[in-house]
Design a protein around this nucleic acid. Structure first.
Length: 279
DNA sequence: CCCCAGGAGACTC
DNA sequence: GAGTCTCATGGG
């Protein structure tokens, strides 16, 4: 894998297994948007645009330094996903799912963003989740000018202090409004420090997360997988439960995949949700 | 009118 | 511990 500057604030990530469409579209993130040619998004306070290339992708509006210090981690570029898919074994359905989702990379998103986003995801659909999150960012996040427009960063810890119950009403988050507020209160007071979870075991971190109302086992698993790089968790949402029941008759053993369980889960989720709707 | 969505909490047994 | 009911909102 090679990182090189190919233009003004334009960096090429060459020689990596990457499908932007599958990575951004597999349900792990909610803010990247396709503009017809590339994917625009804001992460870590920076607005960039990613464009698919044959054997990698381009990141626009960034520097080679940022690519190495920030985007390398965000896109999990140090991991060989091909080796993961090769280690999956001869399970027929899973092999098909891995083939279908080839190029998916698990993003290392920011802890606060994953916490709030997956609280919102509870008993909700992706289109609506995206809308609620976007309204949250416009209301409380900082504006970032790029590509001739204004984008909004996901609110940081300072922004979170301004959150009130009444202020959340425009989100139309329904019963999750009080859960978002509980998360904000616990984080603002210092009762829970998201960044501090990095030093804990996955089990301990999960127990901490579940002190927040609206975070149960499944939401906690998503936060740990997509925000903390805990690849051993296996979030069980409605789609995965269907697969485990309908395809495997309850005999699927996620523990067999050890440190890659989360990646395997993502292949299954994406396949179950999209098979039949993609070319 | 119905059912469903990347579930969780409260309650019952 | 395992089963229900309910929780807002919007789409199909």
């Amino acid at each position: 894998m090679k990182i090189s500057e190919i233009g003004t604030r334009e960096v090429l990530i060459d020689g990596c297994d990457m499908s932007l469409a599958d990575t951004f579209g597999c349900g792990q993130c909610f803010r990247w948007e396709f503009d017809g040619e590339g994917w625009r998004g804001v992460a870590m306070g920076r607005a960039v645009r990613c464009v698919q290339r044959e054997n990698g992708f381009i990141i626009e509006n960034t520097s080679i330094e940022e690519a190495k210090s920030l985007w390398y981690g965000y896109f999990d570029l140090g991991r060989d996903y091909g080796a993961v898919t090769d280690s999956i074994g001869d399970d027929e359905y899973l092999s098909a799912a891995a083939k279908f989702g080839r190029g998916i990379r698990i993003l290392r998103q920011e802890p606060l963003e994953t916490i709030i986003s997956f609280i919102i995801s509870s008993n909700n659909n992706i289109k609506r989740i995206r809308g609620i999150i976007e309204r949250f960012c416009v209301l409380y996040g900082k504006p970032v000018n790029a590509f001739g427009g204004t984008f909004y960063a996901f609110p940081d810890y300072e922004d979170l202090k301004r959150v009130t119950m009444e202020g959340l009403t425009p989100l139309r988050a329904g019963f999750r409004q009080k859960y978002i507020m509980d998360a904000a209160e616990k984080i603002n007071s210092g009762e829970l420090d998201p960044d501090g979870l990095c030093g804990l075991s996955t089990e301990e971190a999960s127990a901490e997360l579940m002190k927040i109302k609206g975070i149960g086992e499944k939401v906690s698993d998503c936060i740990l997988l997509f925000g903390f790089g805990r690849y051993e968790v296996f979030p069980k949402d409605i789609w995965i439960k269907r697969v485990l029941s309908d395809v495997y008759g309850g005999s699927f053993d996620e523990n067999a995949f050890g440190e890659n369980a989360g990646i395997v889960q993502q292949y299954l989720y994406h396949y179950a949700r999209c098979s039949g709707t993609k070319k």
